[in-house]
Measured scan of single mutants.
Amino acid sequence: DEVTIHLGDKTIRVDGLDKELLEILKELARRGADEEELRKEIERWER
């Protein structure tokens, strides 16, 4: 499953996201997290 996250004018595509992680990323994005913060969160989950 590829998920596309839209952040204002930026788009991040991620393969096979965990549903819980997806919810966390959506919440972070709502709070104004930037792409770098979201990537760090994704990397934390992948470990």
Rank of each mutant, 00 (worst) to 15 (best):
L7Q: 06
E23P: 01
E46A: 05
L25P: 00
T4M: 09
E43Y: 01
E43T: 02
K26S: 08
R30H: 09
A33D: 01
E2S: 14
L7R: 02
L7M: 07
A33K: 03
A29R: 08
T4D: 12
I12V: 06
I42K: 05
R30N: 12
D1Q: 12
D15P: 14
R13H: 09
T11N: 12
I42L: 08
R30F: 06
L21Y: 02
G32H: 02
E2G: 15
E35G: 05
E37N: 03
A33S: 04
K40H: 05
K19N: 09
K10C: 05
D9G: 10
D34K: 14
I24T: 07
G32S: 02
E27L: 03
D9R: 02
E23M: 07
E41H: 07
G16H: 15
E20A: 13
D9T: 08
I42M: 10
R13P: 08
H6G: 08
A29T: 07
D34C: 03
K40R: 13
V3Y: 08
D34E: 09
L22R: 10
A33L: 07
E36Q: 10
T11M: 04
A29W: 06
L17M: 11
E36L: 09
W45Q: 04
I12D: 03
D15Q: 05
D18M: 08
L38Q: 01
W45V: 05
K10N: 13
R47A: 15
I5H: 03
E36N: 11
L7T: 05
L22Q: 14
G8D: 08
K19M: 09
L25D: 00
A29K: 06
R31G: 10
R31N: 14
E37Y: 07
V14Q: 05
E37I: 09
V14S: 05
L21W: 02
R39M: 13
E2H: 13
E2V: 13
E46T: 04
E41P: 00
V3C: 12
E35P: 12
I42W: 04
R31V: 09
W45S: 03
K40S: 11
K10Q: 07
I24G: 01
I12T: 03
E36M: 12
V3D: 12
E23N: 10
L25T: 00
E35Q: 07
A29S: 06
G8E: 10
I12L: 06
E2K: 09
T11K: 11
K10V: 13
E35C: 04
L7S: 04
E27H: 07
G16V: 10
L25K: 00
G16P: 06
R47Y: 04
L21I: 06
D34R: 09
K19W: 12
D9S: 10
D34Y: 03
R47C: 15
L22T: 06
I42Y: 04
G32Y: 01
K19G: 07
D9P: 06
I12F: 01
L17D: 02
D34M: 07
L17Y: 12
D18W: 06
R13C: 07
R44W: 15
R47K: 15
W45L: 08
L28I: 04
L21M: 04
L21S: 01
E36R: 09
I5A: 05
G16R: 08
L25H: 00
E41Q: 09
R44L: 06
L38W: 05
H6C: 09
R39L: 12
E2D: 10
L17I: 15
E37A: 14
D9Y: 00
V14G: 08
V14I: 14
G8L: 05
K26C: 03
W45P: 02
R31T: 12
D18C: 07
I42E: 02
L17S: 06
K19A: 11
R47H: 15
E27Y: 01
E37S: 08
R39Y: 11
I24D: 01
L22F: 08
T11Y: 01
E2W: 08
E23A: 11
E43Q: 05
E20G: 13
E2I: 14
I5L: 03
I5E: 05
E35A: 12
E23Q: 12
D1I: 13
